[in-house]
């Protein structure tokens, strides 16, 4: 395992008082807490800060940490035998053990608490993961495979990091940003403690045509100037196949034309209910031909000469 300098992480001297440690932690927590900070690296940084604080605020853990001596951060390191008097002479292997794990399960009077720990239920840790799904998969429902590493106690009560792979059924009707709960799929509980839970955040992979807003979908609908002026029936793609949409005469750019119930399916409480859907909105975009044919130019010039329409009349 690699040594971590907790004092350096918190930016305090090794002689810092508890109050100084708390003050340093709070300052850094305001800066890096993932629920507060917008810094993408904040979560990992806060984990380091929280780990350091959890050890240094506890007098007994701090004493055990200090007993390990001073080493540069990141240096390969192994706790000495009988470290902190808590190994009871047992031949512990620290393979697969993280530095933080040394202190995570370090409880008061640890050398006398082996028996107590064997009977005390320890709940499993909760985990939160984000999975990326396509709009098509969210529309139809899908199954995703999730891989993550969880710390588990071995038979000696030591924490080891164990890979977990599970499949989760993503029901149709999930929306971007949806949270789902997989009960009991987090870290394993110990000594009868309940298993932790897994929280799954659904994130949509950007679609080339559609934008999802809740259960509604939006699509940009390019139309020609003459389709906008005269009206037209155009085919619009949906996730369930194309539909014909009537563009009314006199349509402007940016108008939203609603295609009812062609959005994302909604979650139903009762299984006998027909599945409801959000709507699809086609947002019109008037697109001029980049290159005009001779005939097009003649027709448009004739229109320009004869039309009295002035979209800027209100400027006057």
């Amino acid at each position: 395992m690699k040594f971590k300098d907790y004092y350096e992480t918190l930016g305090v001297a090794r002689t810092a008082t508890l109050e100084e440690i708390k003050k340093a932690y709070r300052k850094l927590a305001h800066q890096y807490h993932p629920d507060v900070s917008k810094d993408p690296a904040g979560e990992a940084k806060f984990k380091e800060i929280g780990e350091a604080y959890a050890t240094l605020k506890d007098a007994e853990k701090r004493a055990a940490y200090d007993e390990l001596g001073r080493h540069p951060s990141g240096q390969e390191f192994k706790p000495p035998p009988n470290w902190a008097g808590n190994q009871g002479g047992q031949d512990y292997s620290f393979d697969g053990t993280d530095f933080a794990d040394l202190f995570a399960s370090f409880t008061k009077g640890r050398q006398h608490s082996q028996q107590q720990r064997q009977s005390r239920p320890i709940p499993g840790q909760d985990y939160e993961l984000t999975t990326n799904v396509t709009l098509e998969d969210a529309y139809a429902g899908t199954t995703v495979e999730l891989s993550f590493t969880v710390p588990e106690h071995d038979q000696q009560g030591q924490i080891k990091h164990v890979p977990h792979n599970i499949k989760a059924r993503i029901p149709k009707g999930v929306i971007n940003g949806q949270k789902l709960l997989l009960r009991g799929k987090g870290g394993k509980g110990f000594h009868g403690g309940a298993d932790g839970n897994l929280y799954l955040n659904i994130s949509f992979i950007p679609h080339r045509l559609f934008r999802a807003v809740g259960h509604d979908l939006y699509i940009d609908l390019p139309i020609t100037p003459w389709e906008a002026a005269l009206g037209a029936t155009v085919e619009v793609p949906t996730l369930a196949g194309g539909v014909n949409l009537k563009v009314p005469a006199g349509t402007s750019s940016g108008q939203k034309l609603r295609i009812s119930k062609r959005g994302m399916p909604k979650s139903n409480l009762a299984h006998d209910q027909a599945q409801e859907h959000g709507d699809l909105f086609a947002v019109t975009q008037i697109v001029s031909p980049p290159v005009l044919s001779e005939k097009d130019r003649e027709l448009l010039q004739a229109l320009a000469l004869n039309s009295t329409f002035n979209p800027r009349a209100h400027f006057k």
Binding site: R169, P171, Q178, L180, K185, L200, S267
Partner: peptide
């Protein structure tokens, strides 16, 4: 791998 069922965290449940 056993497939796990999810619990919705939304306004309807």
């Amino acid at each position: 791998m056993e497939t796990s069922e999810v619990v919705w965290l939304d306004e309807h449940h």
